[in-house]
Amino acid sequence: MEIFEWVRFLAGAAFLLAGVVIFLIEMAGVFRFRYVLNRMHAAAMGDTLGIGFCLLGLIVMNGLNVTSLKLFLVIVFLWFSSPVSSHLIARLEVTTNEDGEKQYQVKNLDQEPQESGGKEEL
């Protein structure tokens, strides 16, 4: 029975350490990229994959009970909230950056009719 406990500890520790590694990669990306919209790409990784791995490892260690259900609810909530907040931050950046044309190109999908579909190449 003790072997089972050790296996559970090792599985949980593997998930938890994988999550911490994802957080480290996120931080490296945030410091290496040059622009906010690139940094956001790295920062969104920790919001979904990093916290997912960490909380999954904690669920494995904790066993199946109400606390684990609440931790799983945190993961589900972040799955929904992280894309929304990323979208809002990106829209703030695109709106407020006066000379953003050097950094990115904005394609306005609302004002282009179907003719752009023919012009677009692969």
Binding site: V36, G50, C54, V74, L78, I89, E93
Partner: peptide, 22 residues
């Protein structure tokens, strides 16, 4: 830029969530 600071605040929130869960 301002968006940098908001992204950093969001990341800090995520890590504090993991700390509370631990």
């Amino acid at each position: 830029r301002t968006a940098d600071r908001i992204v950093a605040a969001n990341m800090m929130g995520t890590m504090v969530i993991v700390m509370i869960a631990i």
